[in-house]
Amino acid sequence: MPHMNEGAGAATTDATVKFRLAAIQMVSTPRVDENLAVADRLLAEAAAQGARLAVLPEYFAVMGMRERDKLALREPDGRGVIQDFLREAARRHGLWLVGGSLPLAASHPDKVLNTCLVFNPQGERVARYDKIHLFGFEQNGERYDESASIEAGRQPVAFEAPCGRVGLSICYDLRFPELYRRLGVVSLIVVPAAFTETTGRAHWEVLLRARAIENQCYVLAAAQGGQHENGRETHGNSLLIDPWGVTLARRDKGEGVVVGDLDPARLADVRASLPALQHRVM
C-alpha cells in the first residue's frame, strides 16, 4: 500500500467543484538562488491565474554542471534553504505545492535522495516521496546514470488534497505502470520531470497519456524545458491530461506556467461510462 505522510488525511474533497492546477516549467541553472527566484515568480503567476495546486519540475532548484554537484547541496530532512523556500512559497501564494525534487541526505554518504516534498497552503508538509526508479541511458555519446549519485526510494506515496487523492512520482518513474497501480484509485497523478530531449521526443507524451487512460485520472506533468548550462537539453512539454487521455494544456519549451482545471464531473463520467477500475482482476 502507498505510504501516507504527515497531515495527508486532513484535506476535504468537494466532488462538484472544478479545481485549478498549474505545472511550472523551468530551465534551471547551477545557481540555487537564481532558480528559487524564478520558481517564486512563476508560482505567483500560477496563483494569479487561480491555481490552487502547483507542481514544480524535477531538479527545479539546481541543474548542476556535473551529476555529483547535487551532493554539495543536499539538505537534512526538515531544514535547509530549498525546503524553507517551498514551505514559505506554499504559504505566501496560498498553494498546495508539489516541490518538484530536491537533494536530501541519504544513508549512503556519497549519494542523495531525489525527493519530492508537498506542502499545503498553510506551509505544513503533508507528504514526502523519494524517487524509486533511477534513470540510466546511453546512446550516441549521451549517457546518464542516476544510480551513481542517487539512492533509490522504496515506498509509493499518495496524499489527500481538496481535489481528491494525489499520487506522487518523479520523471523516470513514468515508465513503470506498476508504481501507479500501487497508489490505488487517485484523482490526479503528478509527474515532475527533467526528461531528456532524446527520450522525451520519443516517449514523453504517449507515456503520460497512457498513465491517465489506464488509471482514469488527471495527469499533471511539470518539466524542465530547454538548453541548460551543463549542456543537457530537456524536452519540456509540460502537460495537463484528462482521464480520457485528452491533452488539455501544454507548454512546449522555455519557462512558463501551464494552467487547467481538474473537473470532478469529467472524472466521474469517464469512470461511469468505462468502469475499467472496477474490472481489474489483478
Rank of each mutant, 00 (worst) to 15 (best):
L183Q: 11
L168I: 08
A193M: 00
E205I: 02
F176L: 03
G200Y: 11
L179I: 09
S149Y: 15
Q155V: 14
Y180T: 09
I189G: 07
Y172H: 14
A194D: 15
F159I: 01
S149F: 15
C171I: 06
E197S: 08
Y172F: 14
G200E: 07
E178P: 01
G200V: 05
L183R: 01
T198A: 12
R154H: 12
R209M: 04
R165F: 00
A193K: 03
R154G: 06
E205A: 07
A161L: 09
G164E: 04
R175Q: 10
A148Q: 12
V186D: 12
Q216T: 07
Q155W: 08
S149G: 09
P156D: 05
Y172A: 09
L168F: 02
R175A: 11
G184T: 04
L168Y: 02
S149W: 15
G153D: 08
A210Q: 08
C171V: 10
E205Y: 02
E160R: 09
Y180W: 07
V206M: 10
E151D: 00
S149H: 13
V191S: 13
G167C: 03
A148K: 13
V206S: 13
G164S: 08
E197F: 14
T198M: 10
L174N: 11
A152P: 13
S169W: 05
V186M: 12
I213S: 01
Q216S: 09
L207R: 14
T198C: 08
A152Y: 12
V206Q: 15
R165Y: 00
I170Q: 10
R211I: 13
V157I: 02
V191K: 02
E214P: 02
E197H: 10
N215A: 05
T196K: 07
V166R: 07
V185I: 11
H203Y: 13
